[in-house]
């Protein structure tokens, strides 16, 4: 556990102005991204995963979204305090991002080659055109696109979803970023293509030594990809742990519920799948205390009054629940 910390998110609070007032989509979220490792952020829709990543990139939808407080430190450089010009230099160059929908994240009116060239040209304006072309072809080959010399002259609509996601990855990697933020990169793809893309990302990470922030709602993908996991619920961190630890000993009732919901091969057929009862509270009308209270099977009166702090279980494992010790005892007794 001596990997140096590359990106440190500290007490991030991000809010949105909506018609009914201000909602805090992300509240007090902290995590570290270690160099060369993969951090997974998992949670259901609307829990603030994407907002966290957009906060890091400072690409929150303007003017409604803004960071209220907190720090995002990249090598002691607070990204939130950088002037826009400086931030632009970081984007794509040191931190890159790939998006959920490869169908819409590529500009339909430009050829693939032009879109890769844009990234290279932007951050390496000294490169000659011939060199850029050569580099683009090499990038496409690296992400496993057959006949890259021809593909470079094609438009996005001529490529399949998996191919487009590969192109997105190629563009994101064009400037050899230190951190790649992958916002549900495989959600829109079918399972076989998903496996290929994950495999590709892993091998590229091994090759370049970059860190990845992997955002998903798929625990299977988390298990496959990540070294550390942040479980978010309704804008807060519920649990934060090493991936093996989390899957073996989930301490937070929400994490436990998620694990229990995964269908198991040993289950008898046609069995009803287990679910977490209830729905996520509206961010505009959050109850005081723990945000998971209305769905929690372990709830006690205290949960309705005070919000549980993030407590350290042991090194690299944090949980935000008053009763984690009891839950742990219960898990271990099984």
């Amino acid at each position: 556990m001596t990997d140096p910390v590359l990106l440190k998110v500290k007490n991030l609070v991000t809010a949105f102005d909506v018609e009914s007032g201000v909602i805090h989509a992300v509240e007090n979220v902290s995590f570290d991204v270690k160099s060369g490792k993969t951090l997974g952020i998992v949670g259901e829709s609307g829990c603030g995963k994407s907002v966290t990543s957009l906060s890091i990139m400072r690409l929150l939808p303007k003017p409604s979204g803004y960071v209220v407080s907190g720090e995002i430190l990249l090598d002691k450089l607070d990204l939130l305090k950088l002037p826009p010009q400086e931030m632009r230099k970081i984007r794509g160059n040191r931190i890159s991002m790939i998006f959920q929908e490869p169908m819409t994240a590529l500009n339909p009116v430009h050829r693939i080659g032009k879109q890769i060239r844009e990234a290279l040209h932007l951050h390496h304006s000294e490169m000659s055109d011939a060199l850029i072309l050569q580099e683009s072809v090499a990038l496409l080959r690296k992400v496993g696109i057959p006949a890259p010399e021809q593909r470079i002259n094609e438009y996005p609509h001529q490529l399949s979803g998996g191919m487009r996601q590969r192109v997105m990855i190629a563009i994101a990697l064009a400037c050899r970023p230190e951190i790649l933020i992958a916002d549900e990169p495989t959600t829109a793809l079918d399972v076989t293509i998903q496996a290929q893309i994950l495999e590709l990302m892993k091998s590229l990470q091994k090759e370049s030594g970059m860190s990845i922030i992997f955002i998903t709602h798929d625990l299977g993908v988390i298990a496959e990809m990540c070294d550390e996991v942040v479980v978010m619920y309704a804008g807060k961190v519920a649990e934060k742990a090493n991936v093996l630890d989390l899957f073996k000993f989930p301490r937070h009732p929400y994490t436990k519920g998620l694990m229990a919901s995964i269908p198991n091969l040993d289950m008898p057929p046609k069995e009803k799948l287990q679910t977490i009862e209830g729905v996520v509270p509206e961010l505009t009308a959050l109850p005081p205390g723990c945000r998971f209270q209305n769905r929690c099977v372990f709830q006690i009166p205290r949960c309705h009054a005070i919000s549980p702090p993030l407590e350290q279980v042991h090194e690299n494992h944090f949980v935000s629940c008053f009763r984690w010790q009891e839950i742990e005892a219960k898990t271990n007794s099984h």
């Binding site: 632009r88 984007r91 991002m97 998006f99 819409t104 500009n107 997105m168």
Partner: peptide, 11 residues
Amino acid sequence: AYVLAAKALGV
């Protein structure tokens, strides 16, 4: 999305 993607590239 591709405008956001371009911004994420630093364009």
